[in-house]
Design a protein around this nucleic acid. Structure first.
Lengths: 166, 166
DNA sequence: CCTGAAAGCAAGTCGGG
DNA sequence: CCCGACTTGCTTTCAGG
């Protein structure tokens, strides 16, 4: 990939941002309905969306599922420490393949990684930490925090329309 | 099953789960293409998706956007402590309204909440923590961890197809 | 780059098995 | 509960300003 700023040539204007704000909240609206809400024709909306998909600003379209309906009643954040540096590449390569790991972020701080993990039960969590993380992936230490309730859990990104104040 | 199980009557079979796995990865496939992949007719796929939307198993449809393309170059997890219990309801009521807060989870452990926060710069993060969290929302203490790199950051949920092994 | 009309295609609705 | 044809509506394209 090129050096520097990856979106230097993307030039999203206020109408693009308005479209993004709408489609990340409800991708099911027709292009006509989007156009009506922001004062644009159907074709213009279509063009802009196509361009943003091509530019990878829009990476894809997904269904938003209810974890509880799928039996995923437990959400936890697992901090991960790996003592020996030579074990980190293997961990980094394999951790993303676990479906119960929704997120894995490399951290600046006391821990190497933080994982967002969704499982049905505490038994499944224990199995994941003991067997997968510690045994297979050679994680030295973990610190797990159980989520009691999610007040907000949205993939929606903050979109600043021309720096408008709150 | 005992009372209190919210999805006791939903009865998702293996075909429903297969559909969910597909649409959460790519909601753009036509019902015909989904049916071809799992061996079902267009109408059957349509019926099942309609039923799962009505049952709120599918909560909606969203566009997956690239944070970097929107200038959101900083991701951080902010742990929040609120000393005085009477300040917690106001926090809980107002925190979800912040667009830079992607997630807010009530925790079991040393901290009250963990926030997943996306902002353009460290300056914006400092402003959010100092002005919004500490000043306006009366948060007592925070511990912020900066994300250096996200190895995985997906809203996709783990869907267990009849206990299939990894 | 946006508009407006025309064509292609998928979603949603039927009756039937 | 699944299938197949029909109808409706949206997406997509095209010519034009």
């Amino acid at each position: 990939m090129g050096a520097g700023v990856p979106n230097a040539d993307q030039r999203l204007d206020a109408r693009d941002l308005a479209i993004l704000e709408l489609v990340q909240r409800n991708a099911d609206w027709s292009h006509g309905e989007i156009g009506r809400q922001i004062g644009l024709s159907v074709s213009a909306v279509n063009d802009r969306i196509r361009r943003m998909v091509a530019a990878k600003v829009i990476r894809g379209w997904t269904a938003d599922l209810d974890p509880g309906a799928l039996g995923l009643h437990l959400l936890a954040f697992v901090n991960v420490l790996i003592d020996r540096a030579e074990l980190i590449p293997a961990f980094a390569e394999r951790i993303a393949a676990y479906p119960e790991v929704q997120e894995c972020h490399h951290l600046a701080g006391d821990w190497n990684y933080i994982l967002k993990v969704r499982v049905p039960t505490t038994a499944a969590l224990e199995n994941f930490i003991s067997c997968e993380l510690k045994e297979k992936l050679k994680v030295s230490r973990t610190a797990t925090t159980i989520v009691l309730r999610s007040l907000k859990d949205s993939p929606a990104l903050p979109i600043m329309n021309g720096g408008a104040a709150r």
